[in-house]
């Protein structure tokens, strides 16, 4: 860990649009500069445990809302959880995990979450659907700028 900013791509890289976060970090780590980039196919507690030592964490993940339009981008902070799909019964929710982190790991970093509305999250495959792919490009540019500006 050499940087103060961590970019985490959450999701399953072989489950269609669910892997959009993983696609993002694979792309970003090529040339986005001063940040650490991690693929995070993990769940809440483990995700929060990865925050340790960073000042800023940027998360990219797929979002699935009830009447969502595929490709829609959501920008949220850590306290402002959207309605995303799926969580294993093996884990706690993200709010609880964050509280756990605050209480037992000291200061939590500033958290920004980019959610991209997914079209397909139930068919195995390594490619993204076109609208999601399009939005991924936009999110990548936003994150590059965020890293560059140090904001």
């Amino acid at each position: 860990m050499n940087n103060k900013t961590l970019v985490l791509g959450v999701g399953n890289p072989i489950l269609g649009d669910d892997g959009v976060g993983i696609h993002a970090v694979r792309e970003l780590r090529k040339d986005a500069g001063c940040a650490d980039f991690e693929e995070a196919p993990v769940s809440s507690l483990e995700l929060v445990e990865m925050f340790l030592g960073y000042e800023k964490v940027i998360i990219v993940d797929a979002v699935k809302t009830r009447e969502g339009v595929p490709g829609k981008i959501y920008e949220l902070c850590g306290e402002d959880m959207p309605t995303l799909h799926g969580l294993s019964p093996h884990d706690v929710d993200f709010h609880t995990a964050l509280e756990y982190g605050k209480k037992f790991m000291g200061q939590m970093p500033k958290i920004t979450i980019y959610g991209i509305e997914a079209a397909n999250v139930t068919d195995f495959g390594e490619t993204l659907s076109p609208k999601v792919e399009e939005s991924l490009r936009l999110v990548i540019e936003k994150i590059k700028k965020e890293i560059k500006d140090g904001s």
Binding site: P82, L84, H85, S88, H90, V121
Partner: peptide, 25 residues
């Protein structure tokens, strides 16, 4: 009901999303 199936610690071959507030049951 949650206590019932939680005892088994089931895994639903799920994706690894963490951001929803709760498991959608």
């Amino acid at each position: 009901i949650e206590m019932a199936f939680r005892a088994y610690d089931p895994c639903f071959a799920c994706a690894t999303h963490t951001l929803p507030g709760h498991m959608p049951l």
